[in-house]
Design a protein around this nucleic acid. Structure first.
Lengths: 202, 202
DNA sequence: CCTGTTCTGTACCGCTCGGTATGAAACGAA
DNA sequence: TTCGTTTCATACCGAGCGGTACAGAACAGG
C-alpha cells in the first residue's frame, strides 16, 4: 500500500539515535522533552505522533540500543569456549563503555537505576532487559556443559550472574569517568576469577 | 552559649534517616520536596532553615549514610590480611545491599547515577564519595604489601578497583531485586578471582 | 510582664514538566 | 484543481517542581 498524506520530514532511526544519546547522558527522568525534541530536530507533536509518548520513545530507544550498541555481547556468545565467551564479553564491554564518540557508561544503567514512584515501570523494564542478557549467557554456559567444555559440577547460572555483576560494575565505574585501561585491568582480574570458578580441576 | 528562640520541633538525625530512605528509593531527582517533607514530618521552611536547600540536605544524608550504613566497609579494613579484607567487604556488602528493613541496593548508586544537566554536581559528588572508599581500600592493600602479606609485584590499586567494580555491580543487581543468595554466590566467585590475583605465586 | 530571637504552618511564587488543540502545509489520487 | 490524509509548527494546558514571604507561636533573658 502506498502511503498517502504529507511525508515524514525526519528519519526514524536517526531520531532514535539522537534521542538515545540524550537518554544515555541524562537518564529517563533527566531527559526533558524540550532537550529530546531539540536533539532530534523535531517538534513535540511529531514525537508524539511517531512514538506515542515519552515512555514509548524510551522503549524504542532501548530496543535500538540492544540491537546496535550491544551487538558485541551477542557476538561474544559465538566464541568456541566458555572462557573465550567471558573474555570477549568483558574485554569488549570495557571498550564499549568508554567509546569516545558515546556517552560514558551504559544506557541500561544510566537510563533509570533510580526512578520516581510513577516511573518504576522504567526501572523494571531496564532490569528485565539486563536479565535477558544474563539469561542468554547462562544458556550459553549450559550448552558449554553439554558440550563437555565446562565440568558438570559448575553452576552455569552462577557464572552468568558473576559476569553480569562485573559488567554492571564496570558500567558504573565508566559512568564515573574511569578510563578504559582501568576497566580492562579489572576485566582481566575478573577473567582470572571466572577461569578459576569455571575450570576448577584445571 | 545557651540557644535562644523557639526550640526545633524535630530531631536532625531522625529527619536525615527519613530523608535517606526517600533518596535511597527514588534517587536525588526522583525525590520531591513534597515526599521528603512528608517522610521527615516537617514543612518546607523548616527543611530549608535546617539544611539550606535540597542539595544541602542530600549531602548531609550521604554523609550520614557513609557514617552509619557503610560502617561495615570501614570495619572490613581492620581484617588482618588482604584476603580477609576482601572477603569481609564482599560478604558484608551482599548482606547490606539486601537488608529487609532498607531499600534494596545502595544510596550511592541509586541516588544519582543519572542526573539532569543542572544536577551533574550530584553525580560527581557521589562518584567522588565512592572513590574515597576505593582509595581507602587501595591504601589498605598498600599496607599489606609493606607488611609482606601481598607480594611486591601485585598492584594494590588494581585490586581495590576490581573489588570496587564488584561491589558496585552487586548494588545494581540488588536494586533490580536479586536475592541475597545470588549476591553471595557472586561474591565467592569474585573472592576466588581476588585470591588468584593477589596471591599469584601461592 | 515585655522584647528579641528562632522556629512553624499556610499560602504563594515563577518555572518547567509531559502532553495536546488547532490550523496551515505538503503530499497522492482523482 | 480539488479532495482526503498525514505531518508540520505554534501556542497553549493543568500539574508539579524547588524555593520563599509572611505572620503567628514558642522559647530565654530582662
Amino acid at each position: 500500500m502506498t502511503q498517502t498524506g504529507r511525508p515524514r520530514g525526519f528519519d526514524t532511526d536517526d531520531a532514535l539515535d539522537r534521542a538515545m544519546e540524550v537518554f544515555w547522558r541524562h537518564g529517563y527522568e533527566g531527559a526533558s522533552l524540550t532537550e529530546l525534541t531539540a536533539a532530534m530536530g523535531i517538534n513535540k507533536p511529531s514525537l508524539y505522533a511517531a512514538f506515542g509518548n515519552k515512555e514509548g520513545l524510551f522503549r524504542r530507544v532501548v530496543a535500538r540500543y540492544a540491537d546496535v550498541e550491544m551487538a558485541y555481547a551477542r557476538d561474544a556468545l559465538d566464541q568456541p569456549t566458555a572462557r573465550d565467551v567471558a573474555a570477549a564479553l568483558l574485554r569488549e564491554n570495557a571498550v564499549a563503555l568508554t567509546r569516545p564518540d558515546r556517552p560514558a557508561g551504559c544506557l541500561s544503567i544510566q537510563g533509570g537505576t533510580a526512578c520516581g514512584t510513577d516511573n518504576a515501570a522504567i526501572a523494571d523494564f531496564l532490569a528485565a532487559s539486563r536479565l535477558t542478557g544474563e539469561n542468554a549467557l547462562a544458556a550459553r554456559f549450559d550448552r558449554a556443559v553439554d558440550e563437555g567444555d565446562l565440568a558438570p559440577e559448575v553452576d552455569p547460572t552462577a557464572l552468568a550472574r558473576f559476569l553480569s555483576v562485573v559488567t554492571e560494575g564496570q558500567a558504573v565505574h565508566a559512568a564515573a569517568g574511569a578510563p578504559r585501561a582501568h576497566l580492562e585491568q579489572s576485566a582481566e582480574i575478573a577473567l582470572h576469577a571466572f577461569t578459576a570458578a569455571a575450570y576448577p580441576v584445571r
